[in-house]
Simulated scan of single mutants.
Amino acid sequence: MKEYQKITHTNTLQVIPWNDLDAKRKDLIQLATKAVDLAYAPYSNFRVGAAVVLENGQTFWANNQENICFPVGICAERLLLGYTHANHPDQKPEILAIVAKKADNSGLATVTPCGLCRQSISEYEMKFKKPIEILMYRPDGTVLQADGIDALLPFKFEDLNQ
């Protein structure tokens, strides 16, 4: 068989114990946890909360908002980033925390941003020319940490068109 050029992308997430997080990251995850319980998810009952800290230190949170017409709903991450950018367009998002609860209410779920959210995060990284740290809280109390969207979205549109 003929040998072709290969393009390789290595992804890395860190698993960080809760006690090793600094106060800023713990506070952000706790805000996202608070947001989970206020999510509007009457159809899937899968609730997601997100919190962000901007470069000026301001924090904001949001949650998923469902609609009976499923494509009309919006994820916590996109709602949060859209709101913060609309109201603070010059402030870079520095850290984004995500927490989710299982649909059966049996506890927390490990969740990563969906594809739409990943591309949205990528847009803000391109705009501000800086990666956004992403923290994903896990049921065992540890946190998955991505240094930027590259760890979750290899071969982005912009990567392959340079």
Rank of each mutant, 00 (worst) to 15 (best):
Q14C: 03
Q14I: 07
Q14M: 11
V15A: 08
I16H: 08
I16M: 09
W18H: 08
W18D: 10
N19E: 15
D20Y: 11
D20W: 11
L21W: 08
D22V: 09
A23C: 00
K24S: 13
K24I: 09
R25F: 03
R25W: 05
K26A: 07
D27M: 02
L28V: 05
L28K: 01
I29F: 02
I29W: 00
T33V: 03
T33N: 06
A35H: 02
A35V: 00
V36T: 01
D37F: 05
L38G: 08
L38N: 09
L38K: 09
P42D: 07
P42V: 04
P42W: 06
Y43R: 00
S44P: 05
N45W: 03
F46T: 12
F46E: 14
F46C: 11
R47A: 14
V48Y: 01
G49K: 06
A51N: 00
V53A: 11
V53H: 09
V53S: 13
L54C: 11
N56P: 04
G57D: 05
G57R: 02
Q58E: 15
T59D: 04
T59G: 01
T59M: 14
F60A: 14
F60Y: 15
W61L: 13
A62F: 10
A62P: 00
N63Q: 07
Q65S: 06
Q65E: 09
Q65M: 08
I68G: 11
C69N: 12
C69T: 10
G73M: 07
I74S: 10
C75T: 14
E77G: 02
E77H: 03
R78K: 10
R78F: 02
L79Y: 05
L80K: 03
H85W: 14
N87P: 00
H88N: 15
P89V: 07
Q91Y: 10
Q91A: 13
K92P: 02
P93C: 12
L96V: 01
A97H: 06
I98L: 15
I98D: 02
I98A: 02
V99P: 01
K101W: 11
K102H: 12
D104E: 06
D104G: 04
D104Q: 03
N105H: 01
A109E: 14
T110Q: 09
V111I: 15
T112F: 15
T112Q: 10
P113F: 07
C114G: 12
G115A: 05
L116K: 14
L116V: 11
L116A: 15
C117H: 04
Q119V: 13
Q119D: 15
Q119I: 13
S120C: 11
I121P: 05
S122C: 08
S122K: 08
Y124N: 07
Y124L: 15
E125A: 10
M126E: 15
M126S: 10
F128S: 09
K129V: 02
K130C: 13
P131F: 03
I132D: 12
E133V: 14
E133C: 09
I134S: 02
M136N: 06
Y137W: 14
R138T: 10
R138P: 00
P139M: 12
G141W: 10
G141H: 08
